[in-house]
Design a binder for these strands. Structure first.
Lengths: 229, 229
DNA sequence: CGACGGCTTGATCCGAGTCAATCCTGGTGG
DNA sequence: CCACCAGGATTGACTCGGATCAAGCCGTCG
């Protein structure tokens, strides 16, 4: 299940990646994946790794999207983050996963052995630095999210989410969301109904348009930014 | 304000530190602070650094306690974490602080120039590794906290908090909390009233005792753990 | 002893959750 | 090409957990 290699898709997708996104400021990690990574395809909703499993691999999204989450014993779910094209995920220090990772939509990812990356990092200080930087960036995102979950109201959460997604996609006006309302709810610490209502409300207030449930157009950035605080 | 050095307190407190806590598993960072760090005293509620300031220093708590937090424009506050004896804080990658740090109680901290630590890390791979590990541990704590803020009820939040604090102090039964109810509330994404009521409720349920408002005795770990997840 | 700050308790309110129908909409098969 | 179906999304009515507002209650310190 893990090694259904598909070089064709790999080349094709990696090519597309470098077109749609400006070259990231730091390259060693991307390069490492290019040299050491193996392309693997995951179907929508399939698990990439599970909480508690040993940490063997690190991943980079070529296409599709991934969610990482934790569950409480009664099924309540908190999504920690979404990972899209170009994002590296699954880089942890300990021996055990503390999240589960699943494909949101059919996804192609590059898989690298953590040991291989660490060994490369031993020879390349710039890679070593980027591994640390990557962890630090994830930490910053998590910390910003703490403020959202602990202190923002539903409207503010949704506005923040939309602006964040806008900053990550190709267009910063038209969002094509890969995730369902339920995923958004579990990311924002809300229910699906509240997410839906809040989006409707923002549409009535002329802040956004929702041509399709998965497509959202930002119409009034100012208004959203004001909610973002 | 920053360099009111006090070698006397430094020696005294560092001595006490190594007594009350078993030697941590990794030492290079602690050693680095011992060699490069300067002892500074901060009064209760005084700011150590502010959000948006440039990142120059890294800190290690010798005594007292520190909170790091973010504010929304209207004053809502989210505390990201508490730092007590032995904890390193303020280790960030970028150029700007994304938190404010304040002393909760009068605190003595060791201050090291980040540049000095980074330079040491260049010569000592084990220090370099520990810097990364430290960031990764902060990330794990933040991620666990996301689940708490996003999906746990008030009772579960308080129970989780108590068990977490118990795991950090000297005694895992008797907690002497350095922070106020307001701090706890802003850490748990609740109001001060809800924290107070919830503690009272736990006391009625015989899960804890509250001999003094700042001292809490864990009486029924089982019950707390059950709430924890 | 009095005053102040931190904490607790009570009464009430409200934002978001819950429960329960619909309502799309995109995919399938006839 | 169209009718149907299933799963996701929306909407509505109502509930409830925690927030808000408002007193009191310590405990500490001058």
């Amino acid at each position: 299940m893990l090694h259904q290699e598909s070089k064709h898709i790999l080349d094709q997708e990696v090519g597309r990646f470098s077109q749609t996104r400006p070259r990231a400021e730091s390259v060693p990690l991307a390069d490492a994946f290019a040299s050491v990574g193996v392309s693997v395809r995951y179907a929508r909703n399939s698990e990439i790794y599970g909480e508690g499993e040993p940490v063997d691999n690190v991943y980079r999204v070529v296409s599709g999207a991934v969610r990482t989450y934790k569950l409480l014993s009664d099924g309540r779910r908190q999504i920690g983050d979404f990972h899209i094209q170009g994002d590296v995920f699954g880089l942890e220090i300990g021996t055990e996963r503390h999240f589960t990772a699943e494909a949101i939509a059919d996804a192609v990812v590059l898989v690298a052995k953590r040991s291989a990356l660490v060994s490369l990092a031993g020879k390349d200080p710039s890679l070593s630095a980027e591994l640390w930087t990557h962890t630090a960036k994830e930490l910053k995102r998590a910390q910003d999210h703490l403020l959202l979950l602990g202190r923002k109201r539903a409207q503010e959460r949704v506005a923040t989410f939309l602006l964040d997604m806008a900053g990550r996609g190709c267009s910063d006006i038209v969002l094509d969301l890969p995730m369902s309302r339920q995923d958004i709810a579990d990311y924002l610490g809300l229910t699906i109904e509240t997410v839906s209502r809040t989006l409707t409300r923002l549409e009535c207030d002329m802040a956004i348009e929702i041509p399709t449930s998965r497509r959202i157009v930002l119409r009034d950035r100012q208004a959203l930014g004001h909610l973002n605080s």
